[in-house]
Simulated scan of single mutants.
Amino acid sequence: MQGSVDYRGRTKYDATTARAYKDRPRRQQAAEMALINRVFKLVPSSHKVLDLPCGAGRVSLHLAEQGYQVTAADYSDSMLEITRAFLQESGHPGEVDKQDIEALSYSNGQFDTIICFRLFHHFPNPKIRRKAVSELCRVSARYVALSYFSPFSVTSMKRRLRVGLGGRASEKYATPLAEVESYFQSQGFALVRDFARIPLLHTLHVALFERTR
Rank of each mutant, 00 (worst) to 15 (best):
Y7H: 15
T11N: 06
D14S: 03
A18I: 04
A20K: 15
K22Q: 14
R24C: 11
R26A: 15
Q28T: 13
E32D: 14
M33S: 11
A34V: 03
L35R: 03
N37T: 13
V43M: 06
P44N: 10
P44C: 11
S46R: 15
K48P: 00
K48F: 03
P53V: 02
R58M: 06
A64Y: 07
Q66G: 04
Y68I: 05
Q69K: 15
V70T: 09
V70Q: 08
D74S: 04
S76A: 08
S78G: 05
M79L: 09
T83C: 12
R84K: 14
Q88E: 14
E89P: 04
E89A: 15
P93T: 01
V96S: 12
D97E: 14
D100C: 08
D100M: 03
S107V: 09
G109K: 07
D112W: 05
T113Q: 06
T113I: 02
I114Q: 04
I115P: 09
C116M: 06
L119D: 05
F123G: 00
P126F: 00
V133M: 03
S134Q: 14
S134A: 15
L136H: 09
R138E: 10
Y143K: 05
F149Y: 13
F149N: 12
S153R: 01
S153K: 00
M157F: 15
K158D: 10
R160H: 03
R162A: 10
R162V: 01
V163H: 15
L165G: 12
G166M: 03
A169V: 12
S170K: 06
S170V: 02
S170R: 02
A174K: 01
L177Q: 10
S182Q: 09
F189R: 06
F189A: 08
V192G: 05
A196R: 04
R197T: 12
R197N: 12
I198K: 12
P199N: 09
P199V: 05
L201R: 08
T203N: 12
V206D: 02
A207F: 00
F209S: 04
